[in-house]
Simulated scan of single mutants.
Amino acid sequence: MSGSFLPKPFSHAYEIDPKFSKSAVYFSCEFAIDQIFKIYSGGLGFLAGSHMRSAAALRQNLCGIGMLWTYGYYDQARGEEREMAVQFRKKQYAFLQDTGIKFQVPVHGHPVWVKAMFLPGDIFGTVPMFFLTTDLEENDHLSRAITHRLYDNDPLRRIAQYIILGAGGARLLEELGVDPEVWHLNEAHGLSAAFRVFERTGSVDEVKKRFVFTTHTPEEAGNEKHDFKLLHDFTFFGNTPMDTVRGITGIDGEVFNHSLAALRLSHLSNAVSKLHGDVSRKMWEHYPNICPITHVTNAQNARFWKDKGIEGSRLEGDIETLKTRKRELKAQLFQTVANQTGKLFNPDALTIVWARRFAGYKRPDLITRDIRLFRSLVNNNERPVQIIWAGKPYP
């Protein structure tokens, strides 16, 4: 279609809106586009997936680059004693198209073959998207395993994954013959792309002109860090010498802070809520030469996530129909709960659900910290309250 910065046959399936004609690429380690496409783990992916849907609805000149995880995050099951069981099952996606594009990316000085698969926008209503895999016959086992598991527990493999996403994504754009005006990093996982651009342009100003950065982590200690020399030995910085990396990122010492480097190599960053913006600006205020940090509140694509029955009733002011539809959906949820736990929930009772990726910093126990208040809630027979905890921890 007219206005797309991507070459055929990968161009956008819609006419680009002139308001959004600026070309952009969005790097993310995970995308929650649809439940059948299991390349995500949590909120970072849901934000990215909805971003791809909304960008298409707005007819933006944007594409996405992610990773094709052979085994996804993992499949959560139950063992014989109903304990959580972790299963890694190989995934296959017939809706992805082979681009025919293969190239090599150095990882720890070793050339690794990378193939790009393509997701046309009309499959799930997204912008055009590319997914990178190293699980190829041309590679040895270690290289193939780079794109096996999302957020692999092996820290060295995680570094390799970030190289494939960032430097590999940048290399893909070179293969496509495009250089988008905006390079958007959803967290700093794809940061190695910035060093690829620096090598190509020889100018840190050219890097900053292109890059923007979404930061998610509300605690400085939670931002990913690695040994500087380890990253250099892994070819994370490409062919850029360590002294040059220190010069353009302003990071001295032995530890490389990925988020700090992203803040210094971008011209703009955004937090994911107004409060998070305040927290982030305060968290980084003691570090010089970082880009401005604004905020864009996290959201989800309404067209995909809203139930049509509930939304229609809401717009018509039909409260009774809305309540009936909500009760139907609760009953469906409670069937799933009963199937997994053997517990029957009351669809007419107020139900509080905590359902997230299970991690301590997400505070799943928050509602129980005032134990007397908690007991008064769950033991009130006149106004019954029932609570569901659900989550997926790191395997």
Rank of each mutant, 00 (worst) to 15 (best):
R53L: 12
M84Y: 00
L68V: 13
A57V: 01
A77R: 15
G72P: 08
E80A: 11
A56P: 03
N61F: 06
R78M: 06
G66A: 10
M67W: 01
A85R: 15
A77L: 15
A85G: 08
T70W: 00
A55T: 04
L58W: 04
A55V: 08
L58C: 03
L62N: 00
G66K: 04
M67Q: 02
G64P: 10
A77D: 14
A56E: 09
G72M: 01
S54N: 09
N61P: 09
C63L: 09
R59N: 09
I65D: 05
A85M: 15
T70I: 13
C63H: 07
E80L: 08
M84A: 11
M67E: 08
G66D: 07
Y74W: 05
Q76W: 01
L62C: 10
S54V: 06
A55H: 05
A57T: 07
W69E: 08
M67F: 02
A55W: 00
T70M: 08
R78P: 00
Y71W: 08
I65S: 01
E80H: 08
A57N: 03
Q76M: 15
D75M: 05
A57E: 13
W69T: 04
L58Q: 11
E83G: 14
L58F: 00
E81G: 10
M67H: 06
E83Y: 02
R82G: 02
D75A: 11
E81R: 12
E80V: 05
R82F: 10
A57D: 14
Y71F: 15
G79L: 05
D75Y: 10
S54W: 03
R82T: 11
G66F: 07
R78N: 08
G64C: 10
W69F: 11
R78S: 06
A77Y: 10
G79C: 08
R82Y: 00
W69L: 12
W69D: 01
Y73H: 06
I65R: 04
G79M: 05
C63G: 07
G72E: 07
A56M: 07
I65T: 02
